[in-house]
């Protein structure tokens, strides 16, 4: 239970970064934190049926559920893709407007900067 509450906390920290922070770079970091929280939650839930790592050497039994781990492998790669694209976008916006503050950037773009 404690682990799940902690993960909800991590998720909310990332959410706070995305919603409340005006710095675009920190918004991207918040997105990364949200991804990590979801990945952690899936791995913990997969671990509720066993304890050993899912590597079937002789004498290994009672393994964790390997399906969430395989799915989270996908989620991690997609998270990296999203982060890279978002960072490239932030780079372009910074090069065009000279600021990382999202409201300031919107204002300068509106001026035909």
């Amino acid at each position: 239970m404690t682990a799940r509450i902690l993960m909800a906390g991590i998720f909310l920290v990332g959410m706070w970064g995305v919603v409340a922070d005006k710095n675009m770079m920190r918004k991207v970091f918040g997105l990364t934190i949200i991804t990590s929280a979801v990945v952690l939650l899936f791995v913990v839930e997969g671990g509720s049926v066993g304890t050993a790592a899912p590597i079937m050497e002789a004498g290994v039994y009672n393994i964790v559920d390997p399906v969430p781990q395989a799915l989270m492998l996908t989620a991690i790669v997609i998270g990296v893709c999203v982060t890279a694209l978002a960072l490239a976008l932030v780079c372009r916006i910074y090069a065009a407007t000279g600021t990382l503050d999202i409201e300031e950037a919107a204002k300068r773009m509106g001026d035909g900067h």
């Binding site: 996908t74 790669v77 997609i78 990296v80 893709c81 999203v82 890279a84 694209l85 960072l87 490239a88 976008l89 780079c91 372009r92």
Partner: peptide, 17 residues
């Protein structure tokens, strides 16, 4: 399919920066 997503993300990033 996942590697295709990665390929598209790499192309997009390279196009942008």
């Amino acid at each position: 399919g996942e590697t295709i997503v990665l390929l598209i993300a790499v192309s997009g990033t390279l196009t942008m920066i």
